[in-house]
Amino acid sequence: MDIEDKNKFTEDEKMRRLLRTSKLRASENFSWRVMQQIETEKALTARRRTSKRPGYNVFTDTRSIFGSMYAVLLAMVALAYFEQGKEVLLTPDFLGKVLLVGVGFIAFWLLTRAEGRLRRKKNRRGLLHQ
């Protein structure tokens, strides 16, 4: 290290020692206050998240109900076809049964949707009063 570098090093070291004497210390309970605020915010955020809409997914419900309907209809068609031949598929009797099954499933789907809507309304009302 040449003399110029050595002088600069000494100057820097002097500055460092001087300036470090003026470093402030946070208040004694500062870290406690900060962590309290963070924990409180985290708790409030978690509560807001869980009180959101319950896990109702119209797509999975619709898929499962209509999926079941198609499965039942397919089973009916297959049974009728293999037992009585394809002529029976176009008879009014058979078509009536298919229609009945379809209407039954659609009614069930509508009831499920209405019940889900009522449940959500109830939950929202419950949150407002908390």
Partner: peptide, 30 residues
Amino acid sequence: QDMAVTIAFRICGNRQDAEDVVQESYLKAF
């Protein structure tokens, strides 16, 4: 916390404000 309060103090010029700023900064950082 100590260095953060020192930095804020250099800018704000008063200790109470400096600690408030640092507390808010920790929340933002989190």
